[in-house]
Structures are given as structure tokens and as C-alpha cells.
């Protein structure tokens, strides 16, 4: 059997409270406050990066639930984000539905279509599903280029400044707060799924599909639920991303986009919230750093893109070989190390 790469400490095993210790409670509140206030103080460029990271962290949670926890590997997550972005824009602008409802509806559409492509996986092992989702990526991308009633132009459509109940999100900071609220809600749902029966069902259908049925876990149903939730996250994230850039660019949802999302959860860590967040941060920040370094070191900017691409590919390969558990595990090791140092006789677990 394949070894399990999901972080066992991530909280799926025991149904403990979301925020158990005082440190965790204060930490969570502090982090949220720091993000909300700190985002007001940074430059608009960094705020834009932060918003992107937050949206991708949200999307990566969905993919992590699907691929990291349930083991259903999807290589079409970006396409489903695109589907969400375009349908949300269509609902909100063409049909005049309020934006918040449009975002939720986009998630539902995404989930429905995701379900359709997930049907083969009900009877098949994972390898076939990868190819099925691959086909979904190709077909959806082609659909974006063709369905002009939805996408307005093959390159994408402008969506303008979002407006919720008369309030215009003209200030990027306000929009960031909206994204943050969505992402925190998504994170709470994700964590609660992991520590509920459903989370354990997902884990067991990945690890031991036959055992799962013996134990009374309905395999087909659990897979369908995973598909629905995972693609719902993708659709909502896509909608948020569209209004973040105020332009839904078809290009952003190509195969490379889907690969990047997979890279996020692998580098971050499969099957945990920390994995999704750290992975999204890593994948957004590292290219920026490389660009910054590149501007100093490489004169010919034409060479920069391929060099960046090479480093990116190399990082993926190196991570998979040497740190297959991702950054989340590295992080947890660090925390545990300092815990031991600081609180020698307390908190023994």
C-alpha cells in the first residue's frame, strides 16, 4: 500500500475542539486581527498580493479536501475556479443577482459540473480520475473560449467594482476584508469537516477503500460529497478572484493554473489547512522574490521567464523527493521543538 502523506497531526484523528488551548484561541484571534489591520497599512501592491494569497488559500482548501484528504486527484481545479468566476459575473452583471448570492450560486454551478466529471471515479481507481479531470480542464477551457454569451470575449470579461447592498468595494482594503471573511468561514468549515465523521470517512476511502465499505462508509456517496465540496470552494474562489482583479482572464484558468494549485497543496502539505495556506503563500511569494532577484542579476528580461520556470519545476521535483510532507510538517516540527524548549513539563502531547 502507498504510504500516507497526510499529516497525521493535522487534526483528523481525534475530534478535539477547533481551538483547544488558550494559546490557540489567542493565536487565531491575533492572526485575524493582524491580517485585518496590517492589510490596511501595507502598500496597495502588497495588499493585492495578500488578497491573491488569501483567495488561493481558499481555493487550495477545496483542492486539499478533494485531493489531499479524499485522495481524488484533480488536475482541473483552476478550470473550475474559472467556471465560478465567469458564472458569478454572469449572474451578477447579466442577470442582476446580488453579488453575494451570485458568488454562492457560482460555487453551486461549479460543484454541479465537477460532479459530472467526477462520475468515472465512482468505479475507478485514482489514475483514471486524473485523466478525467485533465479532460475536464481541456474541455472547460475550450468552453470559456467559445461560450461568448458567458465570457463576452475569448480573453475574458471585465466585471467592474463589486457592490454589496449599496456598498461599493472601491477600496481594495475593503475588498480584502470581504475575501478574508470568506476565507475564514471556509477555513472553519474545512477544519470542522476534518474533525467530523465525514473527515474520517474521507481519510479511510483514500487509504483503504475496501475497508471503508466494510466499516459501513458509503464510498460512492462520500466521494460525491468530496467532489461537491471541493468544487464549491473552487467556484467561490474563482468568483472572488474575478472581482479582485476586476477582470476575469481566461488565461488565468489554464492547465498551468491547475498544476499550480496542485503544487500549492503538495509544497504546503496534503490534507491540512496549514498546507493550503502555506502552499498558497509560497506559490505567490516565491515568484515575486525570484523576479526581484532576477531584476538585479539578469540583464535580459526575456531570459527571466524561462529561468523562473526552471526553478519552479526544480522546486517541485526537489520538494517531492526530499520533503514530501510539505511545509506544514516542517512548521509543525518547528512549533513542537520550541514548545519543548519553552514549556518543558507542561503540554505533554
Amino acid at each position: 500500500m502507498e504510504p500516507n502523506l497526510t499529516d497525521k497531526d493535522a487534526g483528523t484523528a481525534a475530534a478535539r475542539p477547533l481551538l483547544e488551548t488558550r494559546l490557540e484561541r489567542y493565536g487565531a484571534v491575533g492572526l485575524i486581527l493582524a491580517l485585518a489591520v496590517g492589510s490596511m497599512l501595507i502598500s496597495s501592491y502588497h495588499l493585492s498580493l495578500l488578497t491573491t494569497i488569501t483567495i488561493f488559500a481558499f481555493s487550495a482548501m477545496g483542492l486539499n479536501l478533494l485531493s489531499g484528504n479524499a485522495g481524488l486527484i484533480s488536475i482541473a481545479h483552476a478550470a473550475f475556479m474559472g467556471l465560478g468566476a465567469f458564472t458569478a459575473a454572469w449572474f451578477a452583471i447579466d442577470l442582476g443577482i446580488p453579488i453575494l448570492i451570485a458568488i454562492i450560486l457560482a460555487g453551486i454551478v461549479s460543484a454541479g459540473v465537477g460532479l459530472l466529471f467526477g462520475i468515472p471515479s465512482l468505479r475507478l481507481s485514482g489514475l483514471y480520475l486524473i485523466l478525467a479531470t485533465f479532460a475536464a480542464q481541456i474541455i472547460l477551457y475550450w468552453f470559456f473560449e467559445q461560450a461568448l454569451w458567458l465570457t463576452k470575449s475569448p480573453d475574458g470579461r471585465f466585471v467592474g467594482i463589486p457592490e454589496v447592498m449599496g456598498f461599493e468595494f472601491g477600496d481594495p482594503w475593503h475588498y480584502y476584508l470581504l475575501v478574508l471573511v470568506f476565507t475564514i468561514a471556509g477555513a472553519v468549515v474545512y477544519l470542522n469537516i476534518l474533525r467530523s465523521g465525514l473527515g474520517r470517512s474521507l481519510e479511510v476511502i483514500k487509504e483503504r477503500p475496501i475497508v471503508s465499505q466494510m466499516m459501513g462508509v458509503n464510498l460512492q456517496r462520500t466521494k460525491l460529497i468530496a467532489f461537491t465540496i471541493g468544487h464549491f470552494y473552487a467556484g467561490v474562489a474563482g468568483a472572488l478572484y474575478g472581482w479582485h482583479l476586476q477582470f476575469v482572464a481566461t488565461e488565468a484558468f489554464d492547465l498551468m493554473g491547475s498544476i499550480e494549485l496542485l503544487v500549492m497543496i503538495i509544497i504546503g502539505g496534503l490534507g491540512s489547512l496549514a498546507g493550503a495556506v502555506l502552499g498558497a503563500t509560497f506559490i505567490v511569494v516565491v515568484p515575486e522574490l525570484l523576479d526581484m532577484a532576477g531584476r538585479r542579476l539578469v540583464d535580459d528580461m526575456g531570459l527571466m521567464a524561462p529561468i523562473r520556470m526552471f526553478i519552479y519545476g526544480l522546486l517541485v521535483v526537489i520538494f517531492l523527493i526530499y520533503e514530501p510532507h510539505g511545509l506544514a510538517r516542517t512548521w509543525r516540527k518547528l512549533v513542537r521543538y520550541f514548545n519543548k524548549k519553552l514549556f518543558k513539563n507542561k503540554n505533554e502531547h
Binding site: L5, G71, P306, M309, V317, L320, I321
Partner: peptide
């Protein structure tokens, strides 16, 4: 090095390899 790794890792490693080869050609 990926002999006993799970499916997702093996698939991703070939994708990473593909990205590297493509970047070499672009370079």
C-alpha cells in the same frame, strides 16, 4: 526515488520534470 511514493507525488514529479524541460527549450 519515488518508487513507493503515492500517485499524486509521482504524477506531480513528472509534471515538474516537464516544466523543467520546457523551460530549457524556452531558454
Amino acid at each position: 526515488k519515488m518508487m513507493n511514493a503515492p500517485v499524486i507525488s509521482v504524477v506531480m514529479v513528472t509534471i515538474g520534470l516537464g516544466i523543467m524541460l520546457r523551460s530549457v527549450v524556452l531558454l
